[in-house]
Design a protein around this nucleic acid. Structure first.
Lengths: 88, 88
DNA sequence: CCCCATTAGGGTAATTCGGGAA
DNA sequence: GGTGTCCGAATTACCCTAATGG
């Protein structure tokens, strides 16, 4: 099923994370986030991947104690998946 | 669905509370406030949650319960949003 | 074809992180 | 128990100009 592979621009991702578009570009350059390059060299990011990152991206299954239930995280799409997470 | 709240940087939250950014970081580490991490490891806080904390609406019960929990809710994480405990 | 907003790239300053000690 | 400050290191933000996208 479609994971919602809508492509987002660096500016969109930057607004979601409250960071500078340049920072998003740096993440892609560092391989922290999957990126698709246009023939011209510009980057595009997958909406599903960005969303997973925002939510805490976890492959951890965790339920809420209050509020509403939340379905499991979406399967990775075409990216290398959980390439790297947590490296400081 | 979307809370539609902006994300604040530790410095912003620190200025709101008149405390050190380091203190805000400790609150997040202690799970007293929800936090979203950037792929780089930096923290972002929800404007709505910070506002609620400033108003004092975050916790309606902070009486003596250090030894016997009553029903004060098991320390939700992000509050209105999906729970996600940061950890890396 | 031209127009305008956004993005890429490099470089430098400011902020944040993490742990430890006051 | 909680907060403010120190340190080194990493990450992020803003400066610029040129190219890409629509």
């Amino acid at each position: 099923m479609d994971t919602g592979d809508r492509l987002l621009t660096p500016g969109e991702v930057a607004a979601l994370f409250r960071v500078d578009p340049k920072t998003v570009t740096r993440w892609a350059a560092a391989g922290r986030i999957g990126s698709i390059r246009t023939p011209g060299g510009h980057r595009r990011f997958r909406e599903s991947e960005v969303r997973a990152l925002l939510e805490g991206e976890g492959m951890l299954d965790e339920v809420d104690d209050m509020g509403k239930p939340r379905n499991a995280g979406p399967a990775a799409s075409t990216g290398p998946g959980p390439a790297n997470a947590g490296m400081y």
